[in-house]
Nucleic acid binder design. Structure first.
Lengths: 129, 129
DNA sequence: CTTGACCTTCCCGTGACTGGAACCCCCATT
DNA sequence: AATGGGGGTTCCAGTCACGGGAAGGTCAAG
């Protein structure tokens, strides 16, 4: 398979697939003309990566998870550890965003949103607590 | 005031303050020795920027908000519009993260986390839905 | 006079790609 | 044989909002 077909099958942009090769996440073969030739195991890997990225894992996490995936002697505890650390990050981010949203929500509610200049949003940003 | 004092007062790193000058968000004077000299209005602006950034506004949003802040003839509707657009982004992000968290949470719960290799997390990533 | 805490500019790196230029390859049609 | 179009390739630059660190100027205290 050429990169375009793989892109269609995995939903990953060709650019992304090339990038993943560049950083060593996948190692397709090369045809005589220089084209990348992807085996089914490469496509499988790319699907794995796509799903892991969709869950928000960093590339480095993906690298770790891939290694565990391919290691038949892994301990599931190691996988779980990575997943839990990632979930902690996500929850921290959600907490941050919720705090922002709550503050913004109050400010937006308090703002008349008409053609007058008075604005609690700007007052708050300006330090008038 | 020199940059160090401003950094202490605003909580912004000196690097960040220099960056804000570079992109034109603040325009401190210069002393004869080349040091930046910040007036109280500069410090005020920087506090404004710090708060806006803490609410997650992009730098470009900050630029817009600052302009509105300094425009006595603004309409609060314009401010509210920026804030609402930003809140929509935040809510979208929260939704994404919640979805990730839910999926991760299920997978983590399903994973034994012991020294055996069987792992529903990897199974899921591997495409075994 | 030297020390050390400031300050300056400049350049590189971050994460995970995306866009674009310049060029090669292959097949089909004229 | 030339041409056109739709693949593919590499490489370079840009994104966003800074942070790290080098190399060097400035200033007050001891």
């Amino acid at each position: 398979m050429n990169i375009g077909d793989v892109s269609n099958q995995t939903g990953l942009p060709a650019k992304t697939i090339r990038y993943y090769e560049e950083i060593g996440l996948v190692k397709p073969l090369r045809d005589n003309n220089g084209y990348r030739r992807f085996r089914s195991q490469d496509v499988h890997k790319l699907n794995f990566l796509g799903r892991a990225r969709a869950l928000g894992f960093t590339i480095e996490d993906c690298r770790t998870l891939m290694a565990l995936y391919e290691d038949e002697t892994r301990a599931s505890a190691d996988v779980k550890k990575v997943a839990r650390a990632h979930m902690a990050q996500i929850e921290a981010k959600i907490a941050d965003l919720n705090a922002m949203r709550d503050t913004l929500s109050h400010l937006i509610d308090a703002c008349a949103g008409d053609d007058r200049p008075d604005c609690p949003i700007l007052q708050d940003l300006g330090g008038k607590a």
